[in-house]
């Protein structure tokens, strides 16, 4: 009787409510993550002929990728760039996030908004802006030449320039991840460390970093993964010797029209990213990160 009355009033059982609440998230994941990934996976085992996908199962695309040295060069270059960018972003983001959490006070929200400010414009525009600083006719090199100094050549259309561009694009993510972690960090623990004989740096590595390691790892993933797949920055800032895996990948879906090969490259990119995320997650010990919730 009771349930009938309840449903008569339009109330749902707890199970139904749970499902209803879980639905939007599940739909999103299926529609925008699993289905596209699956189609890419399927395409990677097909082949393309004059801009048409032909559903004939084969391993030809992977054979090309793993036997053609240039593809491996692109991949290696992208991995190295992503590693370098992650390290640079890590070192650069920590002080920013630390400052915001420790001294932000009532301006914290404003500072967070400041970190997000670059997203007010499009990515192409921002990269172009970087070009305006580092390029041959950019602020830095023009300034140097004005004083009769030689331009800094590694800033102009080189892999380094591309890496700087990528770091610029993704540092806000890292800052945000570390900042959110630091919001829950008890800065008093640093006083404890200092009273007990730790100098500032020692206290950082003994207390601050381990207790914010999860946030740091999330930041690293948020930088590494897009850096690995970058195509735009390499195209605009990298010059002829900086062609990235992602850049070549995007060509397959455009100019060359070899969708199947492009899909195979996407699968490789996905696997490399997953492997790196796996390695990073291995470094996380919940207890050692001060995770005090229930053990899983």
């Amino acid at each position: 009787m009771a349930t009938e009355i309840a449903s008569a009033r339009g109330q749902l059982s707890p199970e139904a409510r749970f499902l209803l609440l879980a639905l939007p998230g599940a739909l999103f994941v299926v529609a925008f993550l699993i289905l596209p990934m699956l189609s890419i996976l399927v395409f990677s085992f097909w082949r393309t002929e004059s801009y048409n996908l032909i559903p004939e199962w084969n391993l030809g695309n992977y054979a090309i990728l793993f036997t053609t040295p240039t593809y491996m060069t692109f991949l290696l270059r992208s991995v190295l760039t992503a590693v370098a960018v992650s390290v640079v972003a890590l070192i650069y983001s920590w002080p920013i996030a630390y400052f915001m959490a420790k001294h932000g006070g009532r301006y914290r929200l404003l500072l967070s908004l400041g970190v997000a400010a670059p997203f007010f414009t499009g990515v192409i525009l921002r990269i172009t802006g970087i070009q305006g600083i580092m390029g041959p006719v950019g602020l830095i090199n023009m300034g140097l030449m004005n004083f009769g100094l030689p331009p800094i050549s590694f800033l102009m259309y080189t892999p380094t320039a591309a890496a700087i561009g990528i770091a610029y694009l993704f540092i806000p993510f890292m800052v945000t991840a570390i900042y959110l972690s630091l919001l829950n960090f008890d800065f008093e623990l640093l006083e404890v460390a200092k009273i007990n004989g730790a100098k500032a740096w020692r206290a950082f590595f003994e207390v601050t970093l381990p207790l914010n390691w999860i946030g740091t790892i999330i930041g690293l993933v948020l930088v590494f993964v897009p850096a690995l797949g970058d195509s735009i920055t390499a195209r605009f800032l990298g010059g002829p010797n900086a062609a990235s895996f992602g850049q070549v990948l995007s060509l397959q879906f455009g100019e060359t029209g070899t969708w199947a090969l492009g899909s195979a490259m996407g699968v490789v990119l996905f696997l490399v990213s997953s492997f790196v995320i796996f390695l990073m997650w291995r470094s996380v010990n919940l207890r050692r990160s001060g995770f005090t919730g229930r053990e899983g």
Binding site: E188, L189, V192, I195, N196, E206, T292
Partner: peptide, 20 residues
């Protein structure tokens, strides 16, 4: 002198043990 050079011990109200 900074705290770490003073050789004093300190115990806090909220314990402040290192959780990790």
């Amino acid at each position: 002198l900074p705290p770490y050079a003073r050789k004093v011990g300190m115990v806090f109200q909220n314990f402040l043990l290192f959780p990790h």
